[in-house]
Simulated scan of single mutants.
Amino acid sequence: MVICDAPRPRNANATRQAILEAARERFCSESYDDVGMRDIARDVGVDAALISRYFGSKEDLFVAVLDSCKNGRDLMDGSREDFGERLAREIIYGEVMPCQDEGAGAKMRGLLILLRSVGSTKAMDVVQRTSNSRFFDPLTQWIGGKNAPVRARLAAGLIMGMAIGRELSDGYASLDEEQKTEMARRMAVALQGLVDD
């Protein structure tokens, strides 16, 4: 977390972007209920009232953060033939987890924010309203074919479950390299089977 002590130059667009980035980092690493507007303001070096002026309520800021993240369609970037292998490696080896990463991690950032906030009553409404358009619908369209909605939900469940498992087990640190390789292999086979059905 970057904390700015110096006053921020007066540039509305830059300040708005800095607030959005700080909020994205906070929502990615903490649950909705644990994120405070004052904490975000302190991270950016602005007054909390300025956040309300630019974004409105905390819920409005949360929606703006989700809008700024890549959606589920970005998980399908790359070859269809190695989808399972790519996603399994990203999840098992932690290539998707850093929120500040603009590479592979950016593909899962929105999903990680949704997962971190799913336990919040206030955030749950937003999560339920937006998870279809942000994640399930793009994946269903990309999978296509017979039973695509079913296959997409199964694939999403596997992806989300493994992402949560990674968070709960400190990045699968208790597994040795051989076990991680085997887990990635099995996950890749399962995901690819759902895509290729």
Rank of each mutant, 00 (worst) to 15 (best):
G165S: 09
R151S: 03
S169G: 07
A173G: 03
M160F: 01
Q179W: 00
S169L: 08
M162I: 11
Y172Q: 05
M160R: 12
R166Y: 11
Q179V: 11
A152D: 02
S169N: 10
L154T: 14
A173W: 00
R153D: 05
P149M: 04
D176H: 06
L168K: 15
R153H: 07
E178G: 11
D176A: 06
A148W: 04
K180M: 11
R151P: 02
R153P: 00
A156G: 12
K180I: 04
I164H: 01
A148H: 06
G165N: 09
R153F: 03
N147D: 14
A156N: 05
A152P: 09
G171L: 05
E178N: 12
A163H: 02
Q179D: 06
L168Y: 04
R166L: 01
L158H: 05
P149C: 04
E178T: 15
E178P: 00
A156P: 00
L154F: 08
G161F: 03
I159R: 04
L158T: 15
P149G: 07
L175A: 05
D176S: 06
A148E: 01
A173Y: 01
D170E: 14
S169K: 07
D176N: 15
G161K: 09
G165P: 09
E167H: 11
A155L: 13
G157L: 02
K180C: 12
R153A: 14
D170L: 12
E178C: 05
P149V: 10
G171N: 06
L154R: 13
R151A: 07
A155H: 04
N147W: 01
E178K: 15
L158M: 14
L158E: 01
D170T: 14
S174H: 11
L175T: 06
V150G: 01
Y172L: 15
I159P: 04
E167R: 13
S169I: 08
A152Y: 01
L168M: 13
N147M: 08
E167W: 07
E167F: 07
D170N: 15
I164Q: 10
A152V: 12
A156M: 12
G165K: 10
G171M: 08
D176G: 12
G165W: 03
S174D: 09
G161R: 09
M160Q: 14
A155I: 13
A173V: 15
I159A: 02
A156V: 15
G171D: 02
N147C: 04
D170G: 13
E178L: 11
A156H: 08
S174L: 08
M162H: 14
P149L: 04
M160T: 15
A173L: 06
G171T: 11
A173D: 07
E167Q: 15
M160L: 02
G171K: 10
A152W: 02
Q179N: 07
S169F: 01
E177W: 02
I164M: 14
G165Q: 08
E167N: 08
G161C: 05
A155R: 09
L158K: 05
S174A: 12
A156F: 13
E167D: 13
Y172G: 06
G171S: 06
